[in-house]
Amino acid sequence: MKKTLHPIKITVNGIESTHAVEPRLLLSDFLRQDMELTGTHVGCEHGVCGACTVLLDGEAVRSCLTFAVQIDGHQITTVEGLGSNPDELHPLQQAFWDAHGLQCGFCTAGILMTIIPFLEANPHPSEEKIREALSGNLCRCTGYQNIVDAVKLAAERGVGQPNPDD
């Protein structure tokens, strides 16, 4: 089949750009290969592991279950969009650092992108709610206890609550 490229205009981490993509290109591969944003990880590629989770117009989605061509006109936030610069962690990232909420780190980006909208919607979650929110992200180091602790710590520090400066 001949390759037909489709033009797309997208905003990734606040920066707008245009691209030409093959329809079969997954959003996850587009971000990693075309955008060179390798913070988004690819695990199972069928929607089970959650490693590729990014924000689409502010909502957590599996980037392996969406085609890049569908993102035309939309906004994507990846883990690279957290924190103001590489030396200054987002408060959620800082909480994961402080609570040792990661071991190998493969699942971490997907977990962070899952928890950002979760804490915005639930600024004071119960542990049960946290565990439910994390159920779509697999950690094969099985460091779940510290991941739960990290989310609790982030919530205690007010991640997800409206910023008084805004």
């Binding site: 037909t4 093959e22 079969r24 061509v69």
Partner: peptide
Amino acid sequence: MKPAAFEYIVP
């Protein structure tokens, strides 16, 4: 683990 090529239309 990558989809085969296809044509795409968004009506």
